[in-house]
């Protein structure tokens, strides 16, 4: 999959919100890309834009969008509908509300398969059963007839994962799949996702703001800030040589045993994100950046290639 120049604009009462600006993403089969960044930086909107599931008010533009050799830049709703749930699947941040309360688990699992593959309900049921077992749900047969309210959050997220896997997608987008869950359940779900990815050979885009997760599962990382990718690269490289002041700030925020003297405060990034509304200029991070200079307020910085496949959008890359 390859995306270039992805933009999402949303009209708001305060002016046009440029929620996603010029995001480029590339993903090989079987690879895991982690998209990280603070709440509200446009991670979910980027993912929804790829799925063609943006909210009604939002407008998307792209300079390139190819998937499995097919050009999807101008693909209409009909073509995207054929791909969604079939070749590209997504699981969401909110397992509690992402299942329809009025239909049984089995019914909701089967319908995607029936839509894309057709055939008998019995076959779809068999497939649903197989996947429920695969995602580690015990008593899968009886679960098929149950309704979402009878399941815990962790189970619902497992159901969502099974649902996404129904048609063996080539690409799975997981939008903070564990944020709403208990810490113990989080680890299980992540482990499961990673395992399934290997088994199915899927490309995985994992959205998170937990760098601990990134370190465990990512091949490559893209760091987003206020709608832009500010730094990206292979995970090892990014963790050993974080170059963007924002990435460094993020890394300082994770507690590392032994690195902190007892009583010493954990690093936090001071300040708040200003939403990218209206005409923008300069680096969006400058009001929180300790390295900001005059040039940062006026110049627009491109993503520049550093060594080792790392790319950086910052004044520091130019020098």
């Amino acid at each position: 999959m390859q995306v270039e120049g992805l933009r999402v604009d949303i009209p708001t009462p305060m002016g046009m919100l440029h929620a996603v600006r010029g995001v480029d993403l590339a993903l090989e089969a079987g690879e895991t890309l982690c998209l990280v960044g603070e709440s509200g930086c446009g991670k979910s909107l980027s993912a929804l834009a790829l799925m063609g599931l943006l909210p009604r008010a939002a407008r998307r533009s792209l300079s390139r969008f190819s998937f499995a050799g097919e050009d999807l830049q101008r693909a209409g709703e009909r073509r995207m509908g054929d791909l969604r749930g079939n070749r590209i699947a997504m699981i969401f941040q909110e397992p509690m509300t992402s299942l329809n309360p009025s239909w049984s688990i089995g019914n909701q699992l089967e319908e995607g398969w029936l839509r894309h593959r057709g055939g008998s309900t019995a076959l779809a049921r068999e497939r649903a059963l197989h996947l429920l077992e695969r995602v580690g749900i015990t008593g899968a047969t009886s679960r098929l007839g149950q309704y979402p309210h009878q399941l815990s959050g962790g189970l619902r997220q497992r159901v969502m994962i099974a649902m996404a896997l129904m048609c063996e997608p080539a690409l799975m987008i997981a939008d903070e799949p564990t944020t709403a869950l208990d810490v113990t359940v989080q680890a299980q779900i992540l482990h499961l996702l990673k395992e399934l990815q290997r088994e199915f050979g899927m490309g995985l885009i994992l959205i998170t703001h937990d760098l601990g997760i990134v370190a465990r599962v990512a091949d490559r990382v893209a760091v987003m800030y206020a709608g832009e990718i500010v730094e990206q690269g292979p995970v090892a490289r990014l963790f050993s040589h974080p170059s963007h002041p924002y990435t460094r700030g993020l890394l300082d925020c994770i507690p590392v045993p032994g690195r902190l003297a007892p009583g010493e405060r954990l690093g936090t990034i001071p300040g708040v994100v200003s939403p990218p509304i209206g005409a923008l200029h300069g680096c969006q991070f400058r009001n929180r950046c300790s390295e900001a200079e005059d040039a940062c307020a006026t110049r627009a910085f491109e993503l520049r290639e550093l060594s080792g496949g790392q790319r950086l959008r910052c004044r520091l890359a130019a020098t």
Binding site: G85, A89, T97, N100
Partner: peptide, 26 residues
């Protein structure tokens, strides 16, 4: 606007199915 309608669309379901099966019923 609900999340489960987004899920239904994420499955690639046809508009009629999203509208009548998932939305109207609720």
């Amino acid at each position: 606007e609900s999340d489960y309608i987004r899920t239904a669309r994420a499955k690639g379901l046809r508009n009629t199915s999203v509208l009548f099966k998932h939305a109207l019923r609720n």
